[in-house]
């Protein structure tokens, strides 16, 4: 009890770590309180896949070919299951709307006053949120993948697995910065829910959540020799769902794989910068006009 006032003051880094740890604990507690919701919610998210699988099974039964755009029926099932996994990394439920809300109701002010960087705070919160999510979601995910293991091809080599894991990590960052930037539009528009919805739409279509992007390889764009799939490969969206799944299934290999990882990393940087700029300009605008 002696020590006095100048006892141990944790240095900044440690303080940050401690804050983060507290955040992690609190969000884990929160999640456990609503555990019923959570397990049910996670399992339910697999339901649309069930319909998709049946739809594709029916499609395959009506055609005589063994594959569609290079995917066998089993590949299709494995693909949808894998996009569930990649979306568990890249999707940021409620991030954009909560940022926009905090701008609208003025609670963002506290980050203008407190010595905390808003974007870092959000990122840390998301990491905590995701870690907690994985800690609990590993059970339903594990069960579904185990049950469906027959649909998967034999596991790929170590390099592919490494690329797969790297793409997952990048997809988390990409998803985060895209959604956060979107939320910061709240500084300029009162109502961002429609914009968010529009984004979700494009995202749903072009991320590969709906179908493998390879299906678009046969769709012409009007430019000679350039298919719609080629265009989509240059956009950020497919890196939040399609890409990692395709890597695992061996659809992207060699130089193309390295090249694609490069595009993904470049998008992460672009979106991170966009997010920063939006925050800077947004807060400047905010303090100029008052909340």
């Amino acid at each position: 009890m002696s020590g006095g006032f100048e006892a141990i003051r944790p240095p900044g880094q440690l303080q940050g770590l401690r804050t983060w740890w507290t955040m992690l604990k609190i969000s884990l507690e929160e999640r456990l309180v609503y555990r019923g919701d959570f397990v049910l919610g996670t399992l339910m998210r697999f339901l649309p896949i069930v319909t998709q699988v049946f739809l594709w099974t029916a499609v395959f039964s009506a055609t005589n070919r063994g594959d569609i755009a290079g995917y066998s029926r089993n590949d299709i099932v494995a693909y949808y299951l894998l996009t569930m996994l990649t979306r568990a990394f890249s999707s940021m439920p409620g991030l954009a709307t909560s940022i926009a809300r905090s701008v609208r109701d003025g609670s963002v002010k506290k980050f203008l006053i407190q010595p905390v960087d808003y974007v870092s705070f959000l990122l840390a919160a998301r990491v905590a949120h995701k870690l907690v999510y994985y800690a609990v979601a590993v059970v339903p995910f594990g069960a579904v993948f185990l049950l469906c293991r027959g649909y998967f091809p034999p596991p790929p080599d170590a390099t592919t697995i490494a690329a797969f894991l790297l793409s997952l990590a990048l997809s988390f960052l990409l998803g985060f910065f895209m959604e956060a930037t979107l939320g910061m539009l709240g500084f300029w528009f009162m109502e961002v829910s429609s914009i968010v919805f529009g984004y979700m739409l494009v995202q749903y279509l072009l991320s590969g959540h709906m179908f493998p992007i390879d299906l678009l390889a046969g769709v012409p764009t009007g430019l000679a020799g350039v298919s719609l799939a080629d265009v989509v490969h240059w956009l950020p969206f497919e890196y939040t769902a399609y890409f990692s799944a395709a890597v695992w299934l061996g659809k992207v290999q060699g130089a193309q794989l390295a090249w694609s990882l490069g595009i993904e990393a470049a998008w992460v940087v672009v979106m991170a910068v966009a997010c920063r700029v939006a925050w800077r300009r947004g807060t400047r605008r905010y303090s100029a006009f008052g909340g």
Binding site: A58, V59, T63, L205, M210, F211, G218, V219
Partner: peptide, 16 residues
Amino acid sequence: FYLLVFTYTAEIGKGT
């Protein structure tokens, strides 16, 4: 999406 699917098949399910 459905249009895309129908570029690969003539029918959803054989004989349905």
